[in-house]
Design a protein around this nucleic acid. Structure first.
Lengths: 316, 316
DNA sequence: CGTCTGAATGTTAACGTTATCATTGATTAC
DNA sequence: GTAATCAATGATAACGTTAACATTCAGACG
């Protein structure tokens, strides 16, 4: 593999001049530069980034930390990781995927997702030393990017309300996680802002599965008959649709249904589900851009929410 | 950041002894080693891999090439990339994602997926110089890993046949791509091997969409009434299910339906779709392991197919 | 006792690049 | 005419590590 020294010998100048011709052309006489570029063309020279890294004191590598409790095969993990990878590649960075949070100095920055308490401590420690960005919101740290779960459901509920639906119910999860709380709050606030009625029986709890969505919907329609049902996830919405169909309730004629996630299953039900698609590509891209910016000294003003996009189907 | 020289000073030995204590402990007196390890513990020393790479002449980086015609947001791309990333990380490698195929010497190996003709030429040229593995089968190259589309449909068809279904139809795509041809052939061979009848009207063409699957199924049942329908993709299968339901045909009572992909939508239809899940994690893991093995001098005997797994639902 | 062996450690140079300072001419300014 | 300036290039060292060879010293062997 040709090196800068080989090019120097070929052109009769020093290695330094070759380096300058390639990295800082203004410092080299045009004629010399032409000669050097021609020599580079005719050889198989490419810059050795390892050597550059050594002298520059950086690695052009980003650590991506996915806690081991998250399965890499989860769509939202896989899509985000791939988006991060593509965008980092565009910026000339490589990435190292880690499943355990250990300090690693062989990187220029860190992206971490979905931390539990102890990981958060480690992450904050690392963030003291390296540019770091978090996927998921945090009150202890400002460099984060997250899906705007609140706005996603809020906007969806308004979208439905603005179509004239008045009695709107919500089927969602009920455990202590940011995104669960935010989605529910988005619904509540949208209902309040639109001045719509909110009855107790319009708030139903389900797990994130088709089966649980089905059962929750059955419970809901046994006691009430809302005009629309906002679901916290597509899986729940699908279960909901199946339950309604079982009772021969027309969608969206009798009851409208909306979902949240947009991982593809919205197209597999009939009618096609109206859903809020998680902007996973944009989140991954933003995480990558943000860490690269931080490395280059461009700070992030504050945490950044990215709004889901409403994918309108035929269920509303 | 502490270096090997700092540790050397702290312990009163040479940098070389420190290096040996860390990389080749057998060469260092136990007492010296203990002293060195203690010093390393008490400092913030971690090996500088960039420097190691420079002297070793390798980068511990793998190039992952995804042609620009493939969208990184496609589930099968995103999941495979993530799996590659996880497995490379486990082996201490980073990855650089590229959307254009250019020779890059700053890597120890290459993984490429889904090449068109011109990319294939570039890839073969690169493979002359670097350990390289291809995602997708090839006749011009032996280091490849691919989903066994043939066996996936073959096994599924046999699975259905062995449940006693005799008249089995196939709805699949019809364009010139390996996976399209292989899936169809898998069906034909399974039917032949089980000695089942194959009528012309049992072979129906569709595009990979719910709508097209729906239409294809309508055409199929207008002229024939098979006992089971093997679909080339889950989307087609979903369309198929909707068409059957529209005609009040019971699944699987009157007609069984199977899909192929297993990206999640199999759980969103009722009845839950029996499908052959693409082993994307295993493919990604195998691609990563294979390229690392190649780097370490372990050859791949030949191309390797990985069989989809049958996920049994309620539609068969 | 001298030589040989081998374990333990040290010294030097090298990997390929760039930062820093030095040198060389030519041009400009006074 | 001499000093100052500037463009172009070169020489050297450094980044942190390891390969290759060198040294040291203790113990084994005849």
């Amino acid at each position: 593999m040709a090196t800068i020294k080989d090019i120097a010998k070929m052109t009769g100048c020093s290695a330094m001049t070759v380096s300058r011709a390639l990295n800082n052309p203004a410092l080299v006489k045009p004629e010399t530069r032409r000669k050097i570029l021609a020599a580079v063309e005719s050889s198989d020279y490419t810059q050795n980034r390892v050597a550059r890294s050594l002298v520059k004191g950086c690695s052009y590598n980003i650590l991506v930390y996915i806690p081991s409790m998250l399965d890499i095969s989860e769509p939202f993990v896989a899509h985000t990781v791939s988006a991060i990878g593509e965008r980092l590649g565009m910026s000339g960075y490589s990435l190292s995927l880690r499943r355990s949070m250990a300090i690693d100095n062989n990187c220029d920055g860190v992206i971490a997702m979905g931390l539990n308490i102890e990981d958060e401590e480690s992450f904050l420690a690392i963030a003291q030393k390296k540019p770091a960005v978090l996927y998921g919101n945090s009150e202890r740290f400002t460099n984060w990017v997250d899906v705007d779960n609140y706005k996603g459901i809020y906007n969806m509920t308004c979208y439905i309300a603005d179509k004239g639906y008045k009695d709107i119910a919500y089927i969602g999860m009920d455990f202590h996680a940011h995104y669960v709380i935010q989605r529910k709050q988005g619904f509540m606030d949208a209902i309040a802002d639109r001045g719509l009625p909110l009855r107790d029986e319009y708030l139903v709890t389900a797990e994130n599965s088709e089966k649980s969505g089905f059962d929750a919907c059955e419970r809901l329609i046994a006691t009430a008959r809302p005009a629309a049902i906002v679901c916290a996830t597509d899986l729940i919405a699908v279960g909901c649709i199946h339950a309604l169909q079982r009772h021969k309730i027309q969608i969206p004629g009798d009851v409208a249904v909306s979902g949240f996630d947009g991982f593809g299953m919205e197209r597999t039900v009939f009618p096609v589900l109206t859903t809020a698609r998680q902007p996973l590509y944009r989140v991954g891209a933003r995480l990558a851009d943000a860490v690269v910016n931080l490395i280059n000294g461009v700070p992030i003003a504050r945490g950044e929410y990215i709004e889901p996009e409403i994918i309108s189907g035929d269920s509303v």
